[in-house]
Amino acid sequence: TFVALYDYESRTETDLSFKKGERLQIVNNTEGDWWLAHSLTTGQTGYIPSNYVAP
């Protein structure tokens, strides 16, 4: 799992909003700078900017 370093507000319907400190499970990280992730807090799935999270 990864932890959010910053808050992120989604800009498209495929993005995932999250708050700093939220735990995220990475589903697919082969898309370059945008990873498909599942929030362990909200249960939602969407794309996140990879530079906003850390292991």
Rank of each mutant, 00 (worst) to 15 (best):
I26R: 05
L16G: 03
L24K: 00
E9F: 12
G32S: 14
F2D: 00
N29F: 15
Y52E: 01
T42G: 04
G43P: 00
N29H: 11
G21C: 06
Y8C: 04
T14I: 11
L36N: 02
A4V: 08
S17L: 03
F2Q: 04
N28P: 05
G46F: 02
E13T: 12
D33C: 09
T42P: 01
P49N: 08
D33L: 12
I26T: 03
K20I: 07
D7E: 05
K19F: 09
L36P: 01
D33T: 12
E31W: 12
V27K: 08
P55L: 13
Q44A: 11
Q44T: 06
G32N: 13
T45S: 11
Q25K: 10
A4T: 06
T14F: 15
S39P: 00
G21P: 01
S50Y: 09
L16N: 02
T42Q: 04
T45V: 13
E9R: 08
I26F: 04
H38D: 03
Y52Q: 05
Y6S: 07
E13C: 09
S50F: 08
L24V: 05
Y8E: 00
T14H: 14
N28M: 11
S50Q: 06
Y52L: 12
T12V: 11
D33G: 14
V3S: 04
S50K: 14
R11N: 13
R23V: 15
E31L: 14
E9T: 13
T1N: 09
H38L: 15
F18P: 00
F18Q: 00
S17A: 09
H38I: 15
N28F: 09
P55E: 10
Q44K: 15
I48P: 01
K20S: 08
L5A: 03
D15E: 15
G46T: 01
S17H: 05
P55A: 11
G21K: 01
V3Q: 05
T41E: 14
T30K: 12
S17W: 04
I26Y: 03
K20W: 04
L24A: 00
D7R: 02
V27E: 08
E22L: 00
T41A: 13
E22I: 00
D33I: 11
P55Q: 12
L16H: 02
K19S: 09
L40W: 08
Q44V: 07
F18M: 07
S10W: 04
W34K: 13
K19T: 08
T42W: 02
P49I: 04
S17K: 06
Y52K: 06
L40V: 07
P49S: 04
Y47M: 12
F18E: 00
Q25D: 10
